[in-house]
Computed example of a mutant assay.
Amino acid sequence: MRETVGAQVRRVCPRCGREDSIPLVYGLPGSDLFQQAERGRVGLGGCLVMDEQAAFVCRSCELEWGSESDPTADEAELTELLGVAYPDVVRALGTGWRREAPAIGDDVQWFVSGEPAQVAVGVQGPYFVLARPLTSGGEGRPGPLSTDGPRFTRDDVLLDPHPVADAAEAIASSRRRSFRWCRTCRRATAPESFDASEGSCEHCLSILPDSHE
């Protein structure tokens, strides 16, 4: 069974416009899949497996739609802002893009990729820049029109994507080196969400009994 079940983040149903779609699973289901289906976390697509089948079903309107390779709503928005096709975005910038909460007074459209977030792209007019994700609410960073560093355009994505991809990976690689491993959930955690004294992430600490009591 696939790892991601339940409502798919940023997967907007093309019929009703709601973000309430769950994965469709094909083949003969076992008891675990039946339980997930009863809880509304997956849909059962039937035992017949074919080449082209819908990947999601909307719990609100029951439309079966899409494929896992389709862009999410945020990825589609980034694609539109850059003025290219989605495969061009994947080639130059990769996948997994989602909107980053904007800083006050920032008119740049920021998106982040990776879990935890590893690299950010900011789009303003015909230009975009690559940067580290924000790690605190009061942080700021230069956008495409104010940066002293490299900035890119649609033509870079279309005609010479490799320098863009290399720049994105350099930022992501540096960010990953700062990650810490939570001793409780054993997952990589961004340093701003990690308590070094406890060796655990903030999420795990929020559900654990107070170790000091």
Rank of each mutant, 00 (worst) to 15 (best):
G137W: 04
P163K: 05
A165D: 07
S178V: 08
G122P: 01
S146H: 15
V123S: 10
R175N: 05
D166K: 15
D107A: 13
A120E: 01
G140F: 08
V164S: 02
F111L: 12
V112S: 01
I104Q: 14
G149S: 13
A167H: 03
P142Q: 13
G138P: 11
A167Y: 02
Q124G: 12
R175D: 00
I104N: 09
D166A: 15
D107R: 13
P142N: 13
A103S: 13
G140Q: 11
P161H: 06
D155S: 15
Q109G: 07
R151C: 12
A168F: 08
V129L: 14
E139L: 02
G114L: 02
A101W: 09
A120N: 02
S113H: 05
A168I: 06
V119Q: 00
S174L: 11
A172Q: 02
S178W: 04
L159D: 15
Y127Q: 11
G140L: 12
R151K: 15
I171E: 00
G143S: 08
V123F: 01
W110G: 01
D107N: 14
S178M: 12
A131R: 08
L134Y: 14
F152D: 08
W97H: 04
V121Y: 04
L159T: 13
D166I: 10
P161S: 08
R177E: 14
P161V: 11
F111K: 09
W181Q: 08
V157H: 02
F128T: 10
A172C: 14
P116V: 00
E100P: 01
P150C: 14
